[in-house]
Amino acid sequence: GSKLPPGWEKRMSRSSGRVYYFNHITNASQWERPSG
Rank of each mutant, 00 (worst) to 15 (best):
Y20K: 02
S13N: 09
A28V: 15
S2A: 12
R11L: 07
P34M: 01
Y21A: 00
E9P: 00
Y21E: 00
W8F: 01
S13V: 12
Y21D: 00
S13D: 15
N27I: 04
A28M: 14
P6R: 07
G7I: 03
A28H: 14
P5T: 02
K3F: 11
S16A: 07
S29G: 05
G1D: 13
M12C: 15
A28N: 09
R11Y: 07
T26I: 04
Y21T: 00
P5G: 06
N23P: 00
K3N: 14
G17S: 06
R11V: 05
R33E: 10
G36I: 13
S2V: 11
N27Y: 12
F22Q: 02
S13I: 13
T26H: 04
W31P: 03
S16R: 07
M12Y: 15
S16Q: 10
I25P: 03
R18T: 06
S35T: 13
P34E: 02
S16G: 08
R18I: 06
W8M: 01
P5M: 03
S15M: 08
P6H: 09
N23E: 01
H24A: 10
N27Q: 13
S29D: 02
K10L: 13
F22N: 01
S16L: 08
Q30T: 07
F22L: 04
A28I: 14
E32K: 09
S2M: 11
P6K: 07
G1I: 11
Q30K: 03
P6L: 09
P34W: 03
A28Y: 10
W8I: 00
Y21L: 00
G7C: 04
K3G: 15
S2I: 12
Y21G: 00
K3A: 14
R14P: 15
T26Q: 05
R11H: 07
S15A: 11
F22S: 01
W31I: 08
S35A: 11
R33A: 10
S15V: 14
Q30G: 02
W8K: 00
V19S: 07
G36C: 15
G17N: 09
G7P: 07
K3L: 12
S29V: 15
H24D: 04
R18V: 06
Y21H: 00
M12H: 12
G17R: 07
Y20E: 03
R33W: 12
G17M: 05
F22T: 02
S15L: 12
E32Q: 10
S16P: 06
A28P: 01
Y20M: 01
G7R: 03
S2F: 11
M12N: 09
P6T: 08
P34Q: 01
H24M: 10
Q30V: 05
R14S: 15
R14T: 15
V19Q: 06
S15R: 15
G17P: 03
P6Q: 08
R33G: 03
Q30L: 04
I25K: 07
E9L: 06
G17D: 06
R11Q: 04
K10N: 02
G17T: 05
Q30Y: 05
P6F: 14
E32A: 10
W8T: 00
H24Y: 14
Y20T: 00
R14Q: 14
G1R: 07
G17E: 04
I25G: 06
M12D: 05
W31R: 08
S15Q: 11
Y20P: 01
T26A: 04
S16Y: 09
Y20A: 00
G7D: 05
N27L: 13
R18H: 06
T26Y: 06
E32I: 07
T26R: 03
G36T: 12
R11S: 03
V19M: 09
S29H: 11
W8R: 00
P34K: 01
R11D: 02
G17L: 05
G17F: 05
R11P: 01
M12T: 15
